Amino acid sequence: MSSVYDSNLVLIQSALVAVLLALSIQVPLRLGVFSLAGVGSYGIGAYVSANLVLRYELGSIPTMALSALAAAAVSFLLGVVIYRLAGLYLAMATIAFDLTVAVVALNGGEWTGGPVGLFGVFTDLTMGLLFAVVALCLVAVHVTEIGRLARRVTTVREDPELAASVGINVRAYRLTAFVVSGLVGGLAGCLNTLTRSAVGLQDVSFHLVVLALTTVIVGGALSWRGAVIGSVLFTWLPTALAFVGDWQELVYGAIVVLAAIFLPTGLYGAWCSARRQFAVSFVGRRREAAVRARLHQGNVDKEVAAS
């Protein structure tokens, strides 16, 4: 068991980081905010953490905290500026933000390492701490998916006017979505840098936008469980498809397209639908059996009375 864990350690680390990146996209989507700014926050967290370690020799915990807060602060300012945008206009604005972060990274001189990037980012990060941070984030997101807060989030997403009419501050909720997205995205970028001990332009490239969005859509956009499923799937999928060689990209794309067509609510959404249908069918069969039993008993009583 230990040998299996050790041989897949890099994939496990990548999957944990991918979960946080997916959450940075999923959190605003659950509030009806089509923001992809989490990827830009990912890049900010990645480069800020590298500089904190290389220049100030900070440990992993303060590095994570400061990197996440820096990305959250930038995301808050972005949210204030583009708050009135919605739909595709908002998505395009946040993609522009992501591309801006990439341009800054390319031309950042010694602060970003330019095209080469920064290397030698060694800290005291352990797998136990990595698991704990991801678990803490998942618990925090889970809290927003249950009870009264979950109903408020759903109302803000489905009908903002109704939410405002019952006293919900829609603007505050949406700005919070930007901040949380930036916080989680920055934390993901920081952890990626600390686990790989390096950061480069691949950590702010457009392919991360596609990867994060695909992960959320295929896994399921309305629950953290979907983010986990999608992250694990797309972390291990390239390895699983290695046997197809040069056809890997085609097979990968086909899987994504088929999932989008036949599983519009994602894998987790499909599982929830199947579970509800089974429950309804099971309850229906039990009720039908109960009705038949009562009818049979009634017939027996009539026969007894007649005799």
Rank of each mutant, 00 (worst) to 15 (best):
S2A: 06
S7A: 12
L9D: 03
A18W: 12
A22D: 09
S24W: 09
S24R: 07
I25M: 13
G32F: 05
L36H: 02
L36I: 09
A37F: 02
V39D: 06
G45L: 08
S49I: 07
V53Q: 08
V53K: 07
L54C: 04
E57L: 04
S60Y: 06
I61E: 10
L66R: 06
S67W: 02
A72T: 11
V74S: 08
V74T: 10
S75A: 15
L77W: 06
L78S: 06
V80M: 14
L85D: 06
G87V: 01
Y89H: 12
A91S: 15
A93N: 03
I95N: 04
G114H: 00
P115C: 00
G117A: 07
F122I: 14
T123A: 11
L129W: 14
L130V: 09
A132C: 09
V133R: 07
L138N: 07
V139A: 14
V139E: 05
H142F: 12
T144C: 12
R148P: 00
L149A: 08
R152G: 13
R152M: 14
R157L: 01
A164H: 07
S165M: 02
V166T: 13
G167I: 04
G167T: 03
V170D: 04
A172I: 01
G186L: 11
C190W: 06
S197C: 05
A198T: 13
G200A: 07
Q202C: 00
Q202R: 08
H207D: 15
L208T: 09
L222Y: 07
G226S: 09
S231T: 03
T235P: 08
T239W: 06
A242F: 03
A259N: 03
L263Y: 06
G266D: 11
Y268N: 09
W271I: 14
S273F: 03
S273L: 12
F278W: 15
A289K: 13
Q297G: 12
G298T: 07
D301L: 14
E303C: 00
S307F: 04
